[in-house]
Design a protein around this nucleic acid. Structure first.
Lengths: 187, 187
DNA sequence: CCTACCGATCGGTAGG
DNA sequence: CCTACCGATCGGTAGG
């Protein structure tokens, strides 16, 4: 039962998500894997490196999910973006929560990279909203930037309240958010 | 230039909001006020007590803002709730951020109280949404609970992106969110 | 991956 | 509100 660097990063993601980065000690992380805090340094070289790994993995997951169908309508594309976003969130809850909530504990250069990655991702949403506003399927007055923020706000907050074992299954959640958002911006 | 308990709590709110509870040391908090970490214990008896004070102040502010006009339409009442919520957020950014993001660092009994207070506050939104669904002004299919979560998600996320010195002034922000939400749920 | 440790920092106290 | 501390815990290292 020997561990890999990847095991350490996964366990770190879980604890950072549950307790927060600053509230997670290397000794607690070691305990999670059945070893001492000092033994972790055989696999990694600093605690910060673990946060970087988890957060960048989160950013990568969203980026990959943003591959949106080309020849589709704005509504179809936005639906696809929202579905993909929720899929990433529900399949990778710990990385996503760490990505959403603990990125601010990153040092300056890493935080700057994450902020840039978020903006790039948000730009995909903005482009789709703009497409819909231009072709008349979305309201012409909607501001692409503001709308995209509202959409992502609703999506990201799922991390704070949604219980996968609760009454609302994943499909119903996706449909509820999609309906809410599309009614808000449709012409 | 002597300090009161209230000064200490205010400075704590600022640092907790900026760095997070666990990343704020009592020595750093003391420095903020021009005194030593140990001197703070003349005004308070533990670090946790400071978090409790800030978070409960946040809860109180929202509760007080939830006094919604009685004889109004559902739309008017919801508008009033959203405006009040944003006012609290923009006037008390540090307490609000601490309330929204650091409550999880509270010990069990205090955290439970905060969760209960949040649910009570959310219930005011649910009641207004239900009113609108019942009188036909909101879509009959909207689920009051889910809709209220979406509405509060959009409102609370303002803390994460809105810049009061940016191009969107407070009135435009309030109008943009209100339009987005009302279009989403109106019949 | 453990043993044995390092200096730094943590929240907090006694006494003035 | 400061001086002078306390024990505990922190991230991390050397050597095996």
């Amino acid at each position: 039962m020997t561990h890999t660097r990847s095991d350490v990063i996964r366990a770190a993601g879980r604890l950072f998500a549950e307790r927060g980065y600053h509230a997670t000690s290397m000794r607690a992380l070691g305990r999670e894997l059945g070893l001492l805090g000092s033994s972790l340094y055989a696999h990694i070289s600093s605690k910060e490196e673990l946060l970087v790994a988890v957060v960048e993995e989160g950013a990568r997951l969203f980026q990959e999910a943003a591959a949106v169908p080309e020849g589709a309508t704005a509504e179809e594309r936005l639906r696809s973006l929202m579905r993909g976003h929720l899929e990433v969130m529900l399949e990778n809850p710990h990385q996503v929560r760490t990505y959403l909530s603990e990125a601010r504990s990153l040092d300056d250069p890493h935080r700057a990279r994450i902020i840039a990655a978020r903006d790039q991702y948000e730009a995909v949403f903005r482009a789709v909203v703009r497409q819909g506003a231009a072709d008349g399927s979305f309201r012409p007055e909607v501001d692409a930037k503001t709308s995209s923020i509202f959409i992502l706000s609703t999506l990201n907050a799922v991390d704070r309240w949604y219980d996968p074992n609760g009454p609302l299954d994943r499909e119903a959640l996706t449909e509820a958010i999609s309906e809410f958002v599309l009614r808000a911006i449709r012409a």
